[in-house]
């Protein structure tokens, strides 16, 4: 098995057993994973909701750059930073 790396054409998706949940008790979105959970900020939720295994990384970045009217390079850096950390935690597939 080799370690996967993010490329513009990668189609990221949450691995089975990793789930987004809108937590009504804490009033926040969380990412549920084996034996841990992460509280998510709004941009992380936006990123992960787009990781459906169909959209390419480049498309996700374009989409978010438009939504936030923000610089594409900055958005791409945020997206890669989140997705790389999830790859390392074995929560994301490409």
């Amino acid at each position: 098995m080799t370690v996967e790396e993010l490329a513009p054409e990668s189609r990221p998706h949450l691995l089975r057993g990793v789930k987004l949940k809108n937590d009504q008790v804490r009033k926040t979105w969380v990412l549920l994973a084996p034996e841990r959970y992460l509280r998510l900020n709004a941009i992380s939720v936006d990123i992960l909701q787009r990781c459906d295994g169909a959209a390419a990384l480049s498309t996700i970045v374009d989409d978010l750059a438009e939504k936030y009217s923000a610089d594409r390079t900055m958005i791409e850096r945020d997206v890669r930073s989140l997705l790389n950390s999830l790859l390392e935690k074995r929560m994301l597939g490409l």
């Binding site: 098995m1 370690v3 996967e4 034996e35 790859l87 390392e88 935690k89 074995r90």
Partner: peptide, 8 residues
């Protein structure tokens, strides 16, 4: 094993 398995 970085990226393959998480060790707790």
């Amino acid at each position: 094993y970085k990226g393959q398995i998480v060790i707790d």
